[in-house]
Amino acid sequence: MAPVGGIARQPRGFGVLLVLAALAPAVVVVYAMLSDLFMGSNWLGADPVKSGEHLLGEWTLRLLFGTLLITPLRRVTGWNWLAKHRRTLGLFAFAYVSLHLLTWTLLDVQIGISEYVGWADIKKDILKRPFITIGMLAFLLMVPLAVTSTKKMIARLGKNWRKLHRLVYVIPVLGVVHYWMAVKLDITEPAIYALFLAGLLYWRARQARITRAAATVPSPAETVAA
């Protein structure tokens, strides 16, 4: 397909810009949260821990969606240079989920900080509360993907790398389910995320079907039509 808008090659500085854009929300959220907690500012409202925790979770989902958006964008625009940035977005998603988890354990549950909370409490949370179980599972599945994101690992794993990294379709589903189950009643926002994700996955499924069809020998009828 021909490139749209004449950007067949990556514009200069795009990589740096993408990194900065992906980094900015984390810097803002973490700074605002700590400043509200310990310096008396009021960026995130009366409960900065909850606000910050939720924002980091939402940004994790956005970045995961970003990784899934690369291929459709390439198809539509022909900007094939986007492909190499999928790793950037994926690694940032992992960084955000790590911050989300750190905020939860250190600032919210306060493991190792509050004398009223112990490891038993967090174990109970993870094992007995399904929305936390699912969130934790999503995090654990992201670990091998982050570890195998280097060029060396890609080469070493060969065909298995592709298989392993199919988890990128599973992880955001778990993330959205985790979000959905965490809200009390108003599911508007998780529903928006779910809809977006459903769109991305539907596109994949359709694409896979088309590819499979093209791989089989065309029927005489199709040959004639062409």
Binding site: A46, D47, D108, Y116, V117, D121, F131
Partner: peptide, 10 residues
């Protein structure tokens, strides 16, 4: 979905 043993004071 969560413990009620402790609370965070706003």
């Amino acid at each position: 979905r969560w413990s009620q043993a402790t609370e965070r004071r706003i």
